[in-house]
Computed example of a mutant assay.
Amino acid sequence: MSLDKLKVNLQYILPKHAVSRLVGSFAASEAGPLTQAFIKWFIKRYNINMDEALHSDPKAFKTFNDFFTRELKPGLRPIAEGDKVVVQPVDGAVSQAGPIEGGRLFQAKGHDYSLHTLLAGTSEDEAKFHDGQFTTVYLSPTDYHRIHMPMTGTLRKMIYIPGDLFSVNPLTTAHVPGLFARNERVVTIFDTDHGPMAMVLVGATIVASIETVWAGTVTPPTGPQVFSWDYPAEGDNAIVLNKGDELGRFKLGSTIIALFGKEMLEQFDDNFEPGASTRLGQPMATLR
């Protein structure tokens, strides 16, 4: 057995939720010198560019989570203008981008997964994205871990879906069938002037928390069943997020999947292809 396969197979027997919550407890704790030492080690280990951070001194962060979800300096990621420009929602790397064909999304060579399962089996939600487009972007430990809106939208629904916590790094993505539709995730669905859009925040091993700006922490705690929240389309209680606004954040890194309705996108940007680096605010696609 190759080393890569061994690494993947070990994930099947690892108590992933228990490990993730244990790491999460430490990441949320104010452990003083221990927290500071770990932050400094992490910066060195992953070559974090702290010159981009609003607070560049590690001592400014009381917890590892505060550091990991650090803000960037204002104006550092300008949002591309233009009514037809869809922007990249995160710093990361493109895993896949393309059409949703036959209700299925491409994961990696030899693997795909169903839109039906990804969205927790809701036929009405699933229908919004049939024959649409999608992209999957992986956030590494080095990256900025806040998620922003690729285009302006009104929040209509949020779904918490329990599941596994496999790693979502490229190695696991290439070997675990249906990875993104089996991991714990939070689905957010928006109405836009051009059609429906969804942002799926996928959990992973040692991802201690997924948050949104309107609900705060969605997970943990985890649960055995799907939960869903609906939001108004208009009125004082409507939640409207503009292009570039913060949507949520990962406390420890993971993956986002963006879904777009049928015929919404003219095309993805020429440089937006598997393996390419992404930077928040740069053009990702053009609307029809």
Rank of each mutant, 00 (worst) to 15 (best):
Q133R: 03
V213I: 15
F180Y: 14
D230V: 02
R249K: 14
I161G: 03
G24C: 05
F180L: 08
I256G: 00
A181G: 05
G82I: 11
A108Q: 09
L72M: 12
Y144T: 00
E101Y: 02
G102A: 06
L139T: 02
T192G: 08
I13H: 01
F64Y: 13
A127M: 15
P283T: 05
K109S: 14
I239W: 04
R279L: 14
E211Y: 04
Y144G: 00
L118N: 07
T286R: 09
Y231Q: 04
V90R: 08
A27T: 00
T63K: 10
K128A: 05
S25Q: 07
I39D: 04
L76V: 15
V176M: 10
F129H: 02
S29F: 00
L155C: 11
L14K: 05
E246S: 13
L171Q: 05
E81H: 15
G235F: 11
G275T: 06
L34R: 15
T35K: 05
T136E: 01
L10N: 04
T219W: 05
Q96H: 04
K40H: 08
T135W: 00
G32K: 12
K7S: 01
L280K: 10
P170I: 11
F38S: 08
V137S: 03
L287G: 04
G253D: 09
R146E: 08
P177I: 12
R185H: 10
A127K: 12
T192V: 03
T69M: 11
